[in-house]
C-alpha cells in the first residue's frame, strides 16, 4: 500500500543515489584504477555472459558451503552442550569469548603451512571464522530459556529430558537459526580472506588476474559481485528467519 511504495521507492532511490555517486567518483581523475559504475556494470555483464563468473563461484562456493555445513553441525551441537552442561560452559566459554574478539586472520598463514594451499586450508579458514558465532548463539539460545517456562514444565512433573526436548530446544531454535545466518556471514568473510591470503582460486583468482592485467572494471565487478552475493543470501536468510520465528 502507501507505505509499501514508500519503502520500495526509498530503496530504489538508495540504489540510484549510490550508483550515481560511484559514477561521478569514477569519472573524477583521482586514479586510473577506480572505474565508474557504468564501466563496472559492463564488465560484470561480460563476465556473466561468458561464464567466467559462474565458474569462479562454483569453485569458491565449495569450501564456503562445506565449511559452514561442518560448522553448523558441530557448532550447534557444541553450543547446545555448553548450554546444558555447566562444566562444559565453564571450560569453553572463555575460549569462545576470546575467539570472537580475536583477529583470526593472523593464524591463516599457519594453516597454509600445515595443510597446504588446497581445499582443506580454505575449509578450515571458514570454520575458524564461523564457528565462534554459531557456538555462542546456540549456547545463548539454550541459556536464555525463560525460567517461567521451565517452572511450568516442572509444575506438571516434566522430567529433565522432557524439559530439554519440549521446552529448551524449541525455544533455542530461533537463536540457533540466527547463529547460522551470522555464521554464513562470517563464512563469506572467511572465504574471501582465505582466497586473498592462501591462494586465489575461483573468485580470488578472477580478482588477482584482472588486477594484474589492469582490467579494473572487471576486477571491481568481481569484488562487487561477492559483496552482492553475500548481501543477498543473508537478506534471504533473514526473511526466512522472520517467517519461521515470528
Amino acid at each position: 500500500m502507501k507505505s509499501d511504495f514508500g519503502q520500495r521507492g526509498w530503496q530504489l532511490a538508495s540504489f540510484v543515489f549510490f550508483f550515481a555517486l560511484w559514477e561521478l567518483a569514477g569519472r573524477w581523475p583521482v586514479s586510473p584504477a577506480f572505474p565508474p559504475f557504468s564501466q563496472t556494470a559492463v564488465g560484470l555483464w561480460e563476465m556473466i555472459l561468458d561464464g567466467t563468473l559462474g565458474k569462479a563461484y562454483l569453485i569458491t562456493a565449495q569450501p564456503l558451503l562445506l565449511g559452514v555445513a561442518l560448522c553448523a553441525v558441530a557448532g550447534i551441537a557444541f553450543g547446545i552442550g555448553m548450554g546444558l552442561s555447566r562444566a562444559i560452559e565453564w571450560l569453553s566459554l572463555p575460549v569462545f569469548i576470546i575467539l570472537q574478539a580475536a583477529p583470526m586472520a593472523a593464524i591463516i598463514p599457519l594453516l597454509t603451512y600445515m595443510y597446504g594451499i588446497g581445499l582443506t586450508s580454505k575449509v578450515l579458514a571458514v570454520i575458524m571464522l564461523a564457528a565462534p558465532v554459531i557456538v555462542m548463539n546456540s549456547y545463548k539460545g539454550i541459556r536464555n530459556t525463560p525460567p517461567s517456562l521451565l517452572q511450568m514444565c516442572r509444575s506438571f512433573q516434566g522430567t529433565r529430558v522432557q524439559e530439554v526436548l519440549k521446552v529448551v530446544l524449541p525455544h533455542a531454535a530461533a537463536l540457533i537459526f540466527t547463529g547460522l545466518r551470522l555464521g554464513l556471514a562470517m563464512g563469506f568473510i572467511g572465504i574471501v580472506i582465505a582466497e586473498l591470503l592462501i591462494t586465489p582460486t575461483g573468485i580470488g583468482d578472477l580478482i588477482s588476474y584482472h588486477s594484474s592485467v589492469a582490467d579494473y572494471p572487471k576486477m571491481f565487478a568481481t569484488i562487487a559481485s561477492i559483496v552482492a552475493v553475500a548481501a543477498i543470501s543473508l537478506h534471504l536468510l533473514q526473511r526466512l528467519e522472520r517467517r519461521l520465528f515470528p
Binding site: 538508495s14 584504477a33 577506480f34 580478482i207 588477482s208 576486477m219 569484488i223 561477492i226 553475500a230
Partner: peptide, 25 residues
C-alpha cells in the same frame, strides 16, 4: 532511508574483498 540499506549491507559484508581495490587505488 537513503543510507540505511547500504550500512546494513556493509555491516555484514566481507570488507576484506575491498582491500585489493584499496591497494590498486
Amino acid at each position: 532511508r537513503l543510507l540505511g540499506m547500504w550500512v546494513n549491507i556493509f555491516v555484514s559484508a566481507p570488507i576484506s574483498a575491498l582491500v585489493p581495490i584499496l591497494m590498486a587505488v
